[in-house]
């Protein structure tokens, strides 16, 4: 279980997170929605220790992790994999080397054969084949995103954090990535937090949806609960949902 309690984060005089509290159960898929600049990505980066909160607690399976040092975060990051907004692949390494990168650091005892087997498995999981020897700029943006996902799941994290995984993708690839997130979370039984702007996708695959506005949590509930919400920003997000879809999800 992952718990965030009264988390605050400030950049200079700007308070980005204002006392966020959330709890995510094992195996759950939680979507975090909100307008740009409301602190969604900052929340994820605090969880994996890329940013340090001003106050509050982050409890990972009961252990407070927000005050850990960079070295101590090593074990946390083995448990919590993050997929970034950009594919963030290492340009000078091949697709194979990118996927093997984390494996070699987190599991130094693995033999080359074991690494190869795991890399192939992960690329299969994200439906990519024949791209192992290509460099990231030689494959499409959508494929880069999937390689990024394969690289993250390679170390078998129990928690997967996705930072706007479908930003900049066409609708077909967006659907494919969303299906992949759902499929992987169910297949690998991971707990997932997905930061997104896509309410349609959230209603489709999330167990619960959280909505942030100006650094505060303004709504949290199951898709059917969110559909009945009277919070203005949630209603704005729901404006794109057709009546047909609405009644389908409510039923």
């Amino acid at each position: 279980m992952l718990e965030v309690k009264n988390l605050t984060k400030r950049f200079g005089s700007q308070e980005v997170l204002k006392g966020i509290s959330l709890a995510i159960s094992e195996g759950e898929i939680l979507f975090v929605l909100g307008r740009s600049g409301t602190g969604k990505s900052v929340l994820l980066k605090n969880i994996v220790g890329l940013l340090k909160p001003e106050s509050g607690q982050i409890l990972l399976e009961g252990r407070e992790i927000s005050k850990l040092s960079e070295e101590e975060y090593f074990e946390v990051r083995k448990m919590c994999g993050m997929v970034f907004q950009h594919p963030a692949l290492f340009d000078s390494l091949t697709v194979y080397e990118n996927v093997a990168f984390g494996l070699r650091r987190h599991f130094p005892g693995m033999t080359p054969e074991e690494v190869k087997k795991r890399v192939t498995e992960c690329l299969d999981l994200v439906h990519l084949e024949g791209v192992e020897d290509k460099l990231p700029p030689q494959i499409s943006y959508g494929m880069q995103k999937r390689v990024s996902l394969a690289r993250t799941i390679a170390v078998e994290p129990r928690y997967l954090l996705f930072d706007e995984p479908t930003t900049g993708l066409d609708p077909v690839t967006t659907n494919a990535i969303n299906r992949l997130i759902s499929e992987l979370s169910r297949k690998l039984n991971t707990t997932s937090i997905v930061v997104s702007h896509d309410m349609h996708c959230a209603l489709e695959i999330a167990d619960r949806i959280a909505v942030l506005d100006q650094g505060q949590l303004i709504a949290l509930g199951t898709p059917s609960e969110l559909l009945k919400s009277q919070v203005p920003l949630v209603k704005d997000f729901l404006a794109e949902i057709t009546e047909e879809d609405r009644s389908r999800w409510l039923s």
Partner: peptide, 10 residues
Amino acid sequence: EQIDAMRCLG
């Protein structure tokens, strides 16, 4: 974010 990704990969 390659540097952040590197940190996340240990």
